[in-house]
Amino acid sequence: MNKYMLLFRIDPGYFKTVSPEQMQQTLNKWMDWKNRLEQEGHLDQFGDRLQHSGKVICGKTKEITDGPFIEVKDAVQGYLVLQTETLEQASELALGCPVLDQGGSVEIRPLIKTD
């Protein structure tokens, strides 16, 4: 079995206008998707969500700044780790990610095997 990290990206501004009803639908989709991944034995780790901003340190100057800023349209919202045989299979599973319905994106990155 191989492991794949899924990174969810979304425009944080999305949550300013979305209605309670839409949020509930999104919530239900997350729950359904997570349950399905779990039942099928594909879920290795369901990561905690990330706050919208923290600190960023760049380059040799090692200057610490606030960020990423709210204007960032594709901020990382969260992650999870899947276990499947192939990248294709992981991508197939990632299609069910609710962040896609909200105009977000999912990045699928194989973890490098250490053993």
Partner: peptide
């Protein structure tokens, strides 16, 4: 917040 925490 619920949407961030409840799925986890």
């Amino acid at each position: 917040r619920a949407l961030e925490i409840w799925p986890v």
